[in-house]
Write a protein that binds this DNA or RNA. Structure first.
Lengths: 341, 341
DNA sequence: GGTATAATTTTAAACGTTTAAGCTCAAGGC
DNA sequence: GCCTTGAGCTTAAACGTTTAAAATTATACC
């Protein structure tokens, strides 16, 4: 691998001149400039990003970590998110470092390691929650990061999030327009901030429609198929006058559990029971019936998060520092054909 | 951020001594050693990986790139693969850099960039094919890489692959044991090496069972739902004596297309038509009926690929340099209940 | 006590960049 | 002709490590 010294020798100039030419800094005569450029081409020289990094005290890398899904669960956003981040980063000569984080106990230690060893210049966080220890640490360390997701309101940090409340409200309005009045919601445990936001949309829509939420309509479970399946069974056991005709589930996986439970109970999903999911996983369109779901603008989130982070490492607060994007309801047969009674 | 100089000053020694202590190289008295360690702790010092990298002429990063899936297709392996790679890498103080590669035309340029700028010490390739330009370039540049997947037989390079032929053969044997005799295969275009390997398993099993492959039983399509759907329709139009009672599809997505087409035609998948997929995507267990599929040992592949790459960057050829792992057939109701007639 | 040897520590160069500061020289003004 | 100016270029230090080689100190042996 040729170094800047080789280029300098080849062009008959000092290494400083080569550097000035390559960075378009400093005054260099056109003749010298050409000689340097020719030498660069002849030798196929590329500056070492490591050496540049040492000099500039930066790594030009952003760290991103995620919790692996339990078996039999899919991560509907990872691929798109990673790809859009990597693309946006590459446009500014940054790269994305993916690091593992299996054990939540030592999670912060892993982040600290990255920070203190200078591995990365910033982080992208996802799957944030209230009192997120990573955010607490990074804020305290004053280390640049942007989160996909919100956290404690009293913490001031840059984030991008998808408006779950608005999304669920869109789904609810769609169901209400179809004539549904008894609508259930399959939610997440109270600890989940994202789950809380989404649930807000449910309550808001019900209230606006002047409907009361009957006991049992909101069931909170973990994001497991089996839990969703059982929740649906519980709804189907309700007396006809309070039995839901539609369900909004906070994930596609949970929606699938509901669909399968309903089918197994002899109902025709889409006609007898409307179901809405969340995430619009690639699979949703191929389910029977195809599942209405809320699509998050993941590519946009990835792009935004990275451009904001680039602002941040340059020392400027991104503006706006908090961005709330709207999901889009993709209507399919799991709701479109429903006829509530 | 404290540097080695700060530690040296704090401990009252030279920076060389600090380095010797930290790397357990060179002879240092126990007393000095303790003083250095105390200083390290007191200051919270962590060596800069960039500076180390410059000195050692290495980045301790491995590059990995993948082609994003078209919309409505899922990548069943990315998450696990990335995670197992990152874990294995981290155990040896390496990290995984994910970089984007949207445009296949300039794909090699992106790899070359990474190589020449010293961004990475090696690559993990996936989705390899015959005459893969990346492999051609990396071999010529003598740059370390390990592939998940095979390529031209005359190219000698380290790879790990999942034995698709064996996998399909497992599926076929399972179907044959159930009594199926008219078995179709939904394959990939001829250009796909992986597709070819998998198809070999089909022909091998048919031959071993003494069955002739009727015209029309093997259909090659791209990995699209719609193509699979239409292929299934074509099979169902065949006269009863050659109409397949079972289908092996080369991906879960294609299997889903077949299942849905069969259902739409009034058949009960699992009873009237057995279907097998490939990849065992997380969704398979939740389909109706749950889909029998071939599970690739992705975590093992990721781990292996990285440990082999680490051997390689150390200058040793990994041994063995080519590893063929067997997939595992996960039997579910899409075949288990079939009663061929 | 002096010397050879071993143990410990330091010095200094190197890795490949950037960049502040200094040097050289031609041009222009007086 | 001398001084100033500025363009063009070089020198050298710095970034934070590692490590060969030199220097120092301690130990052992006679």
């Amino acid at each position: 691998m040729p170094t800047i010294k080789d280029v300098a020798r080849e062009a008959g100039v000092s290494i400083a001149t080569v550097s000035y030419v390559l960075n378009n800094t400093g005054a260099v005569s056109e003749a010298t400039r050409q000689r340097v450029l020719d030498a660069v081409n002849k030798l196929g020289y590329r500056p070492s990003v490591i050496a540049k990094g040492l000099q500039a005290r930066e790594s030009r890398m952003f760290g991103y970590s995620w919790h692996p899904m339990p078996p039999n669960q899919f991560n509907p956003i990872l691929e798109k998110f990673l790809h859009s981040m990597a693309e946006a980063a590459a446009r500014h000569d940054y790269h994305v470092l993916t690091f593992p984080c299996s054990d939540p106990v030592c999670e912060v230690d892993v982040y600290r390691d990255m920070v203190e060893s200078g591995r990365v210049d910033g982080f992208v966080l996802s799957n944030t929650n209230l009192n997120d220890p990573r955010i607490r640490y990074l804020l305290e360390a004053e280390f640049p990061f942007v989160a996909f997701g919100r956290s404690n309101p009293e913490w001031d940090f840059p984030w991008v999030d998808v408006d779950g409340a608005d999304g669920v409200e869109q789904a609810m309005n769609h169901l209400l327009e179809l004539g549904h009045r008894r609508i259930a919601c399959l939610a997440w445990p109270e600890e989940s901030l994202t789950g809380q936001y989404r649930l807000v949309g449910y309550y808001r829509a019900m209230e606006r429609a002047g409907l009361t939420v009957e006991p049992g309509w909101v069931i909170r479970t973990e994001n497991y198929y089996q839990d969703a399946y059982q929740a649906a069974q519980a709804w189907l056991r309700l007396p006809p006058e309070t039995r839901p005709t539609a369900v909004v589930a906070l994930t596609d996986l949970m929606a699938i559990g509901v669909m399968n439970a309903a089918s197994a109970a002899g109902l025709e999903v889409g006609r007898d029971l409307a179901v809405v999911g969340f995430d619009d996983a690639p699979i949703t369109g191929y389910l029977r019936p195809p599942l209405t779901s809320l699509r998050q603008p993941i590519a946009e989130v990835g792009e935004l998060v990275v451009t904001m982070l680039i602002d941040l490492v340059r020392g400027e607060m991104p503006s706006p520092a908090q961005v709330l994007l709207k999901p889009r309801l993709i209507v399919r047969d799991s709701t479109a054909l429903s006829k509530p009674t």
